[in-house]
Design a protein around this nucleic acid. Structure first.
Length: 594
DNA sequence: CCGACTATGAAATGTCTA
DNA sequence: TAGACATTTCATAGTCGG
């Protein structure tokens, strides 16, 4: 009924040829991936049909740019070879090879001055060590010297987008030279995936030059040995994909190292000596992030495997999250009293109106926005047409919407979204935690939707109680409404000094107000912007209050979250890339505390 | 300008079935 | 096992009225 009116879009797009090369790349080595002349004819046909949009070869250009070659190279290659994809690929591979050797530099019009990354810094880095060895073959080692060094550069201030990408690529095992070349060629907006594609192509080209040096010198632009080249290209791409496909899988059931009601027989994990606390750290983000995100996060956070837990095992609402931490996992204990475990227990008044065909036991994840009044009205009028149970199709529609928007039954045929104080209770906060102080209702939903589930986090942090009987110093990054602080407080762990970094003023006010109301004896210091929390400032703080025992932080998820239709850009997204700031600060604290 | 409100899918994963 | 089908998701941008 609602948003299914988009049936026509696919008709005008012809997908039959677009993925030709990618499909070939995925087929195993058993069948050599050779482009047939059939494919070329089809492509040529399409290109005539769509010549009004873009250039005459726009489709071909897109195809090769998608493979990681720069647009300039592609255009030049097409100009020389027409529509023959075989010849174009050959030429491209040759070009990218020649670009690596200065004496044979072609004037391809690549303009170094247009790229604004700091070449001086990069040169310094690449001179400092023998990073040019290709790590891909050896596999990825744990926290390498590379990004430690990058980090020490970054610790004086915040990270630029380019430095972030560079860190990511360095962590994937690529050399800094490769990464910076790729970034220069692919432009500042290029995603990591595009960059790795480019590096792949360059690697092939390099290996090619090694194997066929003579051949290339004599026969620069001809179609020599194209089968070998392409085979090589696909092999390297496969190697790259093998790295990318090393995806962390979510456990089912999502109980991490155990939940109060379900504790595995024997749980054990051994952390490497160098990551054992203190300082302890606790990082959180959404479990269902785009592919590869958790691999990257885990690689940065010292190769510690994330613990994925769904908060539905702690409360009446689901909340699937991943936590990376170096806490002990033995002898955890839950907060008491245990919060309501079902919708029924949490909202007894809804039982009277709850239809038998609504089989929900738990609510879905609480988000930052609520269902509209119009939807509730649509549901009511749909149900009022029937005396008893509505037909199955209506039931299905209503249930779908109730699940999607977390609606509960508040009257005859009447559904409604949760109230802010109900959300507070479900998430383990004291009632009215976010109320007052001039905060709007909308902002309450937003702040709560972005928060921890306190019981879940407290269960993990409970092991700290016996480690720090006299309290601890807490560094809380992206504090939000203070889920970590509330969890520790409810556990009875004394907070000596809390340094809290939170962008939103209303959230800082909420934490401050909670701090005062709970008669805390320690000090609460808050900061606005994590990018301003540099090494110098941290050092000053630590000289004053002592070292941090615990670093808590859940970095922004909005570019990772599934409900974001607009900017689900992954870890490189505008806000979610602040993860690298978390890492920067954490690594500084760790280095300083040693 | 602020706050309430509404419309806006896709991507990843899980489950069922041939 | 592959593919159809089902479920879930810490959101954004725009409008409107005060």
């Amino acid at each position: 009924m609602d948003g299914d009116a988009s049936g026509e879009e696919g008709a005008s797009i012809d997908w039959t040829t677009d993925d030709e090369l990618e499909v070939l790349a995925e087929t195993g080595t058993s069948s050599p991936p050779i482009l047939t002349t059939d494919g070329i004819e089809v492509i040529a046909g399409n290109e005539e049909a769509s010549s009004s949009a873009g250039g005459p070869h726009s489709k071909l250009v897109k195809q090769f740019v998608g493979m990681g070659f720069s647009e300039k190279l592609v255009l030049k290659a097409i100009e020389e070879n027409g529509g023959d994809t075989d010849l174009i690929l050959n030429t491209l591979l040759t070009y990218s090879n020649l670009e690596d050797s200065p004496e044979q530099q072609l004037s391809l019009g690549s303009d170094p001055s247009s790229s604004d990354y700091n070449e001086a810094i990069l040169d310094d880095i690449s001179d400092m060590d023998s990073w040019s060895e290709n790590d891909v073959a050896e596999g990825i080692d744990s926290l390498s010297e590379k990004h430690k060094m990058l980090l020490s550069l970054a610790n004086t201030g915040s990270l630029s987008d380019k430095e972030k990408s560079l860190l990511v690529l360095a962590n994937m095992g690529y050399t800094v030279e490769e990464a910076s070349l790729a970034m220069e060629r692919c432009g500042p907006e290029a995603s990591v995936s595009v960059l790795t594609d480019f590096i792949c192509a360059a690697q092939v080209a390099r290996e090619e030059s090694y194997l066929h040096e003579d051949d290339l010198k004599q026969n620069r632009f001809t179609n020599g040995n194209s089968k070998d080249k392409k085979r090589k290209f696909y092999e390297v791409c496969k190697r790259k994909n093998a790295i990318e496909e090393e995806t962390i899988r979510l456990p089912n059931p999502m109980i991490g190292y155990g939940v109060p009601s379900q504790q595995p027989e024997h749980i054990h994990r051994s952390l490497p000596e160098e990551v054992r606390g203190p300082p302890y750290f606790y990082y959180e983000n959404v479990a269902l992030a785009p592919k590869g995100v958790w691999d990257t996060i885990s690689r940065f956070l010292y190769e510690i495997e994330p613990e994925f837990v769904d908060s539905k095992y702690f409360s009446a609402t689901a909340r699937k999250r991943g936590y990376v931490h170096n806490l002990p996992i033995q002898n955890r204990f839950p907060l008491v009293p245990l919060p309501p475990q079902t919708i029924n227990q949490a909202f007894p008044l809804t039982r009277k109106w709850w239809p038998s065909w609504d089989t929900r036991d738990k609510l879905n994840c609480i988000q930052t926005a609520i269902g509209s009044a119009k939807l509730s009205e649509r549901i009511r009028s749909a149900l009022e047409r029937y005396d008893g149970d509505p037909p199955e199709s209506v039931q299905k529609f209503v249930l779908e919407q109730c699940r999607k928007w977390n609606l509960v039954w508040v009257g005859r045929n009447k559904v409604a979204p949760l109230e802010p104080d109900e959300v507070e209770m479900l998430l383990g906060f004291p009632k009215n935690h976010t109320r007052g102080g001039g905060i709007s209702r909308t902002d309450r939903y937003k702040s709560l939707g972005n928060s921890f589930q306190v019981d879940t986090v407290a269960y993990h942090l409970s092991v700290l109680k016996e480690i720090f009987p006299n309290g601890l110093n807490l560094l809380s990054l992206f504090s939000g409404i203070g889920g970590g602080e509330v969890a520790l407080h409810r556990l009875g762990i004394k907070l000596k000094n809390v340094v809290s970094v939170e962008k939103s003023k209303v959230n800082r006010d909420i934490v401050r107000s909670w701090w005062e109301q709970t008669n805390q004896r320690g000090n609460l210091i808050d900061f606005d912007d994590i990018q301003q929390v540099d090494g110098e400032r941290l050092e000053t703080i630590m000289n004053s209050i002592g070292r941090f025992d615990l670093v808590i932080g859940g970095s922004p998820c909005n570019n990772l979250a599934g409900s974001n239709r607009v900017s689900r850009d992954g870890l490189e997204g505008k806000e979610s890339s602040l993860f690298f700031e978390y890492f920067r600060v954490l690594d500084f604290i760790r280095c300083y505390s040693r």
